[in-house]
Design a protein around this nucleic acid. Structure first.
Length: 903
RNA sequence: GCACGGGUUGGGGAGCGGUCAAACCCGCCAGGCUUAGGACCUGGUCGCUUAGUGCGUUCGGCGGUUCGAGUCCGCCCCCGUGCACCA
């Protein structure tokens, strides 16, 4: 099929090429592969993508989220992602910026380890090979990375600094170890951070329920930055969606902490509804609460244990539908304002580590509490009445949760609930039994993992000294290669690694075998790029100060409350440790859309719907693929990959290539000059604002205009190639050379728009020409005229123009028939046409907006310029005033809408 | 349940409250050119019209604001995403 196709693809295009004495492009197709290779190596030779040291240019740091190097390599989805950044980086480079555009690999992680278990390959080998594949593919895409900045997080010269930062955090108390109810994924065989649990499932295993286990683990004190992380969000130039996800994730809520007395001890209870405190009839403590046991009396132990066993077997299923359940603990709490004793239940609907893990239950005014109370026959006490209504505990079928007026609340009765929140809180503060407080959903980041392929946590456990950090001089704690994969943490199988002497006392001690969450690695990699070869310190502060923060970050929205929050935390923590002096790592963030495969699902290896860039490249050339991907939609929108569409992009590329094979150099017309400068202006702002799809439309329009010209100057052709270069880097280099240039487009200066050369009038004339021409042709066809010998164009009578101006000015954007009529009748010249005035005003009022634009140009002069262009084709063209015509249709010519008579 | 996106002409996808029947691409139709081809060129592609730059009807549904609404507001329906028993 293919061979037949290409042999047939000859014809007129071929003849043209042969006349020019050149190889027929269309026939040979175009050797994209060798052109791509050639320019990729030229770029490398010239080092055009290297950042400059001590540059006077303004800096810009363009960064894509670095990939996890999986064995399956890149697909078109990645291609889209990196192309978006590459276009931007090339554009900025040409605009005179010193651009840092690096690439690296998030090389630690579970998939490598799992592959090792499955295929018997060592994770190190697996990862190294994957990285090689990725690099080769990325180079094949023509991405303009400065490869000298390369890093991989699994190299000791990188993870050494993970350990170094860990120790710094440990010193400051930002890294700590505690026993807690943590998330455990039985498939990953490790604990997970809260951010890695999605709706009760593991982020890597959609099918796997996460279990709650009580384990001692390492945490980073991310919560000490909760407030700052939240407060800085409005300042970020990030997509609103990501900002809102982060705000929700941090989940700040204002409320009151009330001290209830339980077994002689004060328990702080967090609530947003202190106004309902007189309605508390019981308390519920989380079934996962670490202090639950202390509340259970001997008599109730059995009941509570039964309950705990029951929820363990059902709790992970259908969290949405879960019925509220619980068991009485046997303990009571004393309400500080009523001195009533209320029973404490253990319940499945209370979160252990939000607030204090126990809630005061007000069944009359909280739906969950209501359901629970009904189930266990606990009294319901109404303390807030809706305005103008009277509800009673016996009759309500659901909790009344809205605002109202307090009742049964001692001296607070009669207050509006909103007001009483303040008053009750104040009262509690006065008597020392409560205070205003804030609560966050955000929790500390659990960073230890019971897996092999990660950064060893630099700590040993000494029998005498307890937790002892590894001294800085002994870093890095190397990850041993010799381990056995299978059950449990492979690191435990290496005795030399595990059994060490205590750095403090020299006594027997055991090395920590947990490794760090890989999100630790990715929380500061953007800093390391700035100084990736430094072996003395994690990075030179001066270099960081020059390059950071990242000006433009590009990546997927799935990292909204994982990587993007961790990196922000890390930056703030490093700032407070004196490593950096800025507050936020990423000034601007762009979320690229997801590429969907032909089955409509997001393109991914596991779905089996991936399209490989190599294959597309081979068929269409990578520039064509880039053009196609970016022209489909705005780059932040999801889009589908469809093979059919790319043919159109190939056509466009081939048209451009053919044109440049046989250019027609000469002096450009004013018209094309105007168009070029308009295009410069538009395309510059399109790329700047990631409106690549519009940039491509403008490029195509510009090319159509160039192609239609008899002659175009070399300078203008060069401008076109420069404008196209960020999107189609390879072919533009090839064509740049073809029209006689030596240097590389990649290092050329971006063209500047000379606004003076944009000629609105000329473009109006052109538009008039083409619309006139079409009208004439259409009329000719409809009238079945053999030939057009004469065209008469009738333009509106002058009084109509005058009247129009009056109407536009009188009405000031708002149709006002009366005012318009009055104004027109006041003008003696217009008054002569009184019979036509009324319909004219109606017409004008109905298109007021359009007409106020029309006012700006002179119909007659535009047509006078337009007509001669068409005379060659249609013979004599006359322009005349409507009143000179006897034809009623022509007489009705409206301003801006000329009438035609053709003979 | 809460929050955020989105529903536009055959498909993809644009659309500062007036210049918008709605960019651009694909598809489709007609014509041209032809070593008759899924190449290239030109035009068309909501309906009705037609010597029109004419009329009508449209932008998930229903209301509202406005002289004027895909465009703003309210409610509803559908699709997608995030969080989810957060007290």
């Amino acid at each position: 099929m293919a061979a037949k196709k290409s042999s047939k693809r000859t014809g007129s295009a071929k003849e043209k090429k042969e006349n020019a004495g050149k190889a027929p492009v269309a026939e040979k197709k175009f050797d994209f592969a060798s052109v791509e290779k050639k320019w990729q190596s030229e770029w490398e030779k010239a080092g055009v993508f290297k950042t400059e040291e001590n540059s006077k240019k303004p800096k810009i740091y363009v960064l894509e989220m670095f990939p996890y190097p999986s064995g399956s390599g890149l697909h078109m989805g990645h291609t889209l992602n990196y192309t978006i950044g590459d276009v931007f980086a090339r554009f900025k480079r040409m605009n005179g910026f010193n651009v840092l555009y690096p690439m690296g690999y998030d090389a630690f992680g579970l998939p490598a380890e799992n592959a090792a278990i499955k295929a018997g390959v060592h994770p190190k080998k697996y990862t190294e090979e994957s990285i090689q594949t990725f690099m080769k593919q990325q180079k094949g895409l023509g991405l303009s990375y400065d490869w000298s900045k390369l890093l991989a997080t699994c190299n000791p010269d990188y993870y050494k600094w993970n350990q170094y930062f860990f120790l710094k955090f440990f010193e400051k108390g930002l890294a700590y170890r505690k026993k807690a109810a943590v998330n455990w994924c039985p498939d990953c065989e490790t604990v997970l951070a809260n951010e890695q649990v999605h709706s009760g499932k593991c982020w890597r295993h959609e099918e796997t329920d996460v279990e709650i286990r009580h384990l001692e683990q390492w945490f980073l004190k991310t919560t000490s930055y909760s407030d700052e992380l939240l407060e800085c969000i409005p300042k970020l130039q990030w997509p609103a969606r990501i900002k809102s996800i982060q705000e929700n994730w941090i989940g700040k809520s204002f409320g009151t902490e009330i001290l209830f007395e339980i077994n002689g001890k004060k328990w702080p209870i967090f609530t947003t509804r202190p106004d309902t405190i007189f309605g508390v009839t019981f308390m519920v403590v989380s079934a996962q609460h670490p202090r639950l046991n202390g509340l259970v009396t001997a008599a109730q132990k059995r009941e509570v244990d039964d309950f705990l066993r029951k929820i363990k077997s059902t709790s992970e299923k259908d969290t949405t539908e879960l019925e509220k359940e619980g068991a009485f603990t046997g303990s009571y709490a004393t309400n500080p304002l009523t001195n009533e004793n209320v029973p404490i239940y253990a319940g499945n609907f209370v979160v252990a580590d939000y607030g204090s893990g126990m809630v005061m239950a007000v069944p009359a005014h909280d739906q969950r509490d209501f359901e629970f109370a009904k189930k266990y026959n606990i009294p319901v006490k109404v303390v807030i009445q809706p305005k103008g209504k009277n509800i009673s505990a016996e009759l309500i079928g659901e909790a009344f949760v809205d605002e109202g007026v307090l009742v049964n609340s001692t001296k607070f009765s009669g207050l509006e609930s909103k007001k009483s929140i303040e008053e009750i809180t104040e009262h509690l503060e006065k008597i020392g039994l409560g205070k205003k407080t804030v609560n966050y959903k955000f929790r500390d980041w659990l960073i230890s993992r019971q897996r092999y392929w990660g950064t060893p946590i630099p700590v040993v456990y000494c029998e005498k000294c307890g937790i002892v950090p590894v001294p800085e001089k002994d870093l890095p704690v190397l990850l041993p290669e010799k381990v056995e994969f299978g059950k449990g943490n492979p690191l435990l199988s290496n005795k030399e690694f595990v059994n060490v002497k205590c750095p403090k006392c020299g006594g027997t001690s055991r090395r920590e075998t947990d490794t760090m969450d890989t999100f630790f690695d990715s929380s500061w990699y953007f800093l390391r790029y700035c100084d990736n070869k430094n072996s003395k310190v994690p990075f030179d502060k001066k270099k960081i100060e020059y390059w950071m923060p990242v000006d433009q970050y590009i990546g997927g929205a799935e990292h909204a409350c994982m990587h993007l929050i961790y990196a922000r935390f890390f930056t703030k923590a490093l700032r407070d440790l004196g490593f950096v002096s800025f507050d936020e790592p990423f000034t601007k963030l762009f979320n690229q859309g997801m590429l969907h495969g032909s089955d409509g699902h997001v393109m991914s290896k596991s779905r089996g719907n991936i399209v490989l860039p190599e294959e597309v490249s081979k068929k269409y050339g990578i520039d064509t693929a880039r053009l196609f991907l970016l022209s489909q939609a705005a780059p932040d929108k999801d889009m589908g990959w469809k093979e059919e569409g790319i043919e159109g992009s190939l056509r466009a590329v081939m048209k451009i290539v053919s044109y440049f094979e046989n250019p027609r150099p000469g002096k450009s017309s004013r018209k094309i000059e105007s168009k070029i400068h308009r295009a410069i202006r538009n395309i510059t702002s399109d790329i700047e604002n990631f409106r690549y799809n519009f940039a491509i439309i403008n490029l195509r329009k510009l090319f159509d205009a160039i192609e239609g010209e008899e002659k175009v100057s070399k300078e203008h052709l060069e401008i076109f190639l420069k404008l196209l270069h960020p999107i189609c880097p390879h072919i533009t280099e090839e064509l740049w050379r073809a029209i006689g240039n030596k240097a590389l487009v990649a290092s050329e200066k971006w063209p500047e728009c000379d606004a003076k050369l944009i000629d609105e009038n000329l473009e109006r004339i052109e538009a008039a020409v083409s619309s006139l021409r079409l009208d004439i042709l259409r009329i000719k066809e409809l009238a079945k005229l053999e030939k057009v010998s004469k065209v008469r164009i009738f333009v509106a009578q002058e009084w109509k123009w005058k009247a129009l101006k009056i109407i536009v000015s009188v009405c000031d954007g708002r149709p006002d028939f009366g005012a318009a009529m009055k104004a027109l009748m006041a003008d003696p010249e217009i008054k002569q046409h009184s019979s036509e005035i009324q319909p004219f005003i109606k017409g004008a009022l109905s298109r007021l907006g359009e007409l106020s634009m029309l006012e700006k140009f002179d119909e007659v002069s535009v047509l006078k310029e337009a007509a001669p262009v068409l005379e060659k084709e249609f013979g004599k063209i006359e322009i005349m005033k409507s009143e000179e015509s006897a034809e009623p249709k022509a007489r009705n010519a409206f301003p801006g809408k000329p009438a035609l008579i053709i003979e």
